[in-house]
């Protein structure tokens, strides 16, 4: 059994969008890559997502949204995490995110955005690169 802290990832669906095929796909793929993945289910408030992230002691929160409200909801999750003294938790996003929104999201603290068509290996590489940088200590 491993002596180091296992990487735990929360996959969350903020807002009113009820389509979670993509979120579930990513959750399963990350499980198969050897991570412990917690899935919230659909229609979560940013407040609930942050509460779950803290209780589950995850190092990553992956947000999935297809409704177009990402510019509102993704930065709000980042902000609430920082307010809860948990700014060390890495937030990334996916779903239907237009290219022109990505710079703004990154500026707001969303560390990576994975649009449709991203191979899952890119997500795994991102997680590993953050972990090597000492995020999951």
């Amino acid at each position: 059994m491993s002596q180091k802290n296992k990487i735990r990832i929360l996959i969350a669906k903020p807002g009113l969008d009820g389509h979670d095929r993509g979120a579930k796909y990513v959750a399963r793929a990350l499980r198969d890559a050897g991570y412990e993945v917690i899935y919230t289910g659909i229609r979560q408030t940013p407040e609930a997502i942050v509460t779950i992230a803290l209780q589950e002691d995850v190092q990553f929160v992956g947000l999935s949204l297809l409704s177009g409200a990402h510019n509102e909801l993704f930065p709000r999750v980042v902000k609430l995490l920082r307010e809860a003294d948990a700014g060390d938790i890495v937030v990334f996003g996916g779903g239907i995110i237009p290219d022109y929104d990505i710079p703004g999201l990154k500026e707001a603290g969303v560390q990576a955005v994975f649009p449709p068509g991203t191979p899952i290996s890119a997500v795994v590489e991102f997680i590993e690169s953050c972990s090597v940088a000492g995020v999951s200590s």
């Binding site: 412990e36 993945v37 289910g41 408030t45 407040e47 609930a48 209780q55 589950e56």
Partner: peptide
């Protein structure tokens, strides 16, 4: 793979932000 997908709290999400409720998912890790 040692990985796990933990989804039990989906059915408990009525208690989203109640500070009196703490829910933790745990993988059996062998």
């Amino acid at each position: 793979t040692g990985g796990a997908l933990l989804g039990d709290r989906i059915r408990m999400d009525l208690h989203g932000t109640d500070p009196g409720v703490f829910i933790r998912s745990m993988a059996s890790r062998g």
